[in-house]
Write a protein that binds this DNA or RNA. Structure first.
Lengths: 216, 216
DNA sequence: GTTACCGTTGACCGAAAGGTTAGCCGGGCA
DNA sequence: TGCCCGGCTAACCTTTCGGTCAACGGTAAC
């Protein structure tokens, strides 16, 4: 490379201790997420991070510890609060927005979603903490849905009489199904828009084959 | 139990060549399905099958070959033809039955479904053939659903106007979502029955919160 | 009895895994 | 100046991995 490391140390020349740790974490994120835990060796992580293998064991006691650190790091973008974004809308719009939000998020974070799903399905022994955290997120999302559905039904916005709890579960399941379809076959016959239409039909009795803010 | 193995060799005493091969396959099925490919060593398979490691390599050239054999073996129960079971019913009943069938099958074969899902999510390089086969099964199921929905709509059984293709995708996604919910948290707030009710509401406009097997 | 083959095995191999250790280097501080 | 200590590394250790190999016992054909 052109840039010489022996250039006079100005401000950013001296490597911070944090620096190498972060580099390792980032490399491990890439490798673990794309290949998985058991298929990724510490030597690979070291090579990818341009660091000696021993340094990894200096920062993290074991391979598991590194993996756990990667998990929590990858999970960070999942903690967003939705409430503030949609408090002004009515129940129906909020539900629709929640659905759109879910599908959008999954699409944006497809690779890490895939990783988490595979990890939780595969060896739950390694990722018990992950399981708990994901279930907590999931529960929060679900609770919002239950409350929204309850209010919407109380206001008479829904066409059918149902138990909000069951309806929320079913809706959530549908979303999860769309998610895994998205993970396997990119864009299938049904896209986010179509899904929203279907939900509208089911919950509110919309009968347009194409409803919503159509711009064309 | 009472039966002695040292009984005089009559007919089944001498071990067939097929015998050991099968024992290996069954052991490998258990181990691969519960621990995964990379986390299962050939020595473990050998121990579990009460056989020397070398014998495994005599039956199967490589570990991958054994794995592939396990995959196709595990996939066998998935090839069932549904058509004959439900040809006499009308579209609505057939759709409901299809849904029930899907959910029942997933419940019965939860462990292998979990395994296949994890495998396909994890390293698709190892299981390209699996991917193709599963997608083929999935496509067949989907085609049946599309046709049924089309006919049901043509007969005016459905409350909403929709594209059969999109509706089938959505329904299938909902089923898949129920499947993964089942895989993660056993029995959730929504069971197969509840799901069937929801599908009835959505497609046919049933308005009972708890509709049993209603025939009228 | 000899031969030939099939199923089977223990011993072995090089490679790679996770992890350890002794020690290098350079800046802060007495 | 000299010592210490945090960041960092090359080399090494042990274990286990997928895979090979020479050889053994038993049965069937000759």
């Amino acid at each position: 490379m052109g840039s010489q490391e022996k250039a006079p140390a100005a401000a950013e020349a001296r490597p911070q201790p944090q620096d190498s740790r972060d580099e390792i974490l980032k490399a491990a994120m890439r490798l673990f997420a794309s290949r998985g835990f058991h298929e990724t060796s510490m030597s690979e992580v070291a090579r990818e991070a341009h660091v000696s293998k021993a340094l990894i064991f200096w920062h993290f006691k074991t391979k598991e510890e590194l993996f756990l650190a990667v998990l929590t790091r990858l999970l960070e973008p999942y903690f967003i609060d939705f409430a503030e974004e949609a408090s002004a809308l009515d129940e129906r719009a909020q539900i629709i927005k929640l659905v759109e939000f879910y599908l959008h998020f999954v699409r944006e974070n497809a690779s890490s979603v895939r990783f988490f799903l595979a990890q939780m399905l595969h060896d739950q022994s390694l990722s018990e903490g992950l399981n708990d955290q994901v279930l907590k997120l999931y529960g929060g999302f679900r609770a919002m849905l239950v409350e929204l559905l309850g209010r919407a039904q109380a206001k008479g916005l829904c066409t059918h009489r149902f138990v909000p709890d069951a309806a929320a579960s079913f809706l959530l399941s549908a979303l999860n199904g769309l998610m895994i379809e998205q993970l396997f076959v990119g864009n299938s016959a049904i896209d986010s828009e179509g899904a929203v239409v279907m939900v509208g039909q089911w919950l509110f009795g919309d009968d347009q084959a194409s409803s919503g803010p159509r711009r064309d």
